[in-house]
Amino acid sequence: MKKIILVCLSIACVWAAGINDESIGLRKVSLMDENKVKIEDINYSAQPPGMSTRFDRSFENAPPMIPHDLDGLLPITTELNMCTTCHMPEFAKDVGSTSVPKSHLVDLRTGKDDKGMLDGSRYNCVQCHAPQANTEPLVKNKFHPNFRDEKSKTSSNLIDILNQGVK
């Protein structure tokens, strides 16, 4: 209930201040008129798995972006996940792909080791991992990540540092 009141108050403040709804969103069109929506043609990587250039992570332990084409790999379901055929630890080294980190093989809610199996809450890879695209960001920023070491640009140590500072 508090959230609804806050949202309503926020909208009322924007309306009372006379802020044009075209200046609020990233699209710079009226938020009330979906007829003016222009869907951009985004150039995603068309390279097949293993042939593309990988981007560094945006920050330490950020989910890496998907550097290859996803044709034939979607949809991802609990019964069929094509990502695991290359990215599970037992296959990754042989095919030269990035292995899922140890954090994906543990139930982070309970700490239970899933004994080499992908945790059930981690099956939907594209929930966190997005395809790389050749596009300009909608909003410029000056953020530059600080990695603890060079390896952190391409791999995760989340499971090892997850409880750092927790007593």
Rank of each mutant, 00 (worst) to 15 (best):
C13A: 12
D107F: 13
S52C: 15
R122I: 00
P64N: 01
S152E: 03
P49A: 08
I19F: 15
F55L: 14
K142F: 14
P89S: 09
N35E: 07
K102Y: 13
R27I: 03
L118V: 13
N20G: 11
V126Q: 05
S152W: 00
D113S: 11
K112Y: 13
R109Y: 14
C83E: 00
S121F: 06
E34H: 06
A46C: 15
K151R: 10
P101D: 05
T85D: 03
S30Y: 00
H104D: 02
L138F: 09
M117T: 04
S58E: 05
P89W: 04
N141T: 08
G25Q: 04
N20H: 14
S152F: 00
P48I: 11
C125Y: 02
S121E: 09
S23H: 15
T53S: 14
S45N: 11
D56Q: 05
P49G: 03
D94R: 14
C125H: 02
N43F: 12
S52V: 04
D119Y: 07
D33Q: 06
G72L: 06
K153V: 00
E60S: 03
I76R: 01
C86V: 06
K115A: 09
T154H: 14
C13T: 05
R109F: 15
T84W: 03
E136Y: 10
D114T: 15
G18N: 06
V106K: 02
E79F: 07
P137W: 01
I24H: 11
Q47E: 15
Q127D: 12
K28M: 12
E60P: 01
N124G: 01
E22L: 07
C125I: 05
E34M: 04
Y44Q: 00
A130C: 02
Q132M: 13
E136M: 13
N134V: 09
L70Q: 01
S121C: 04
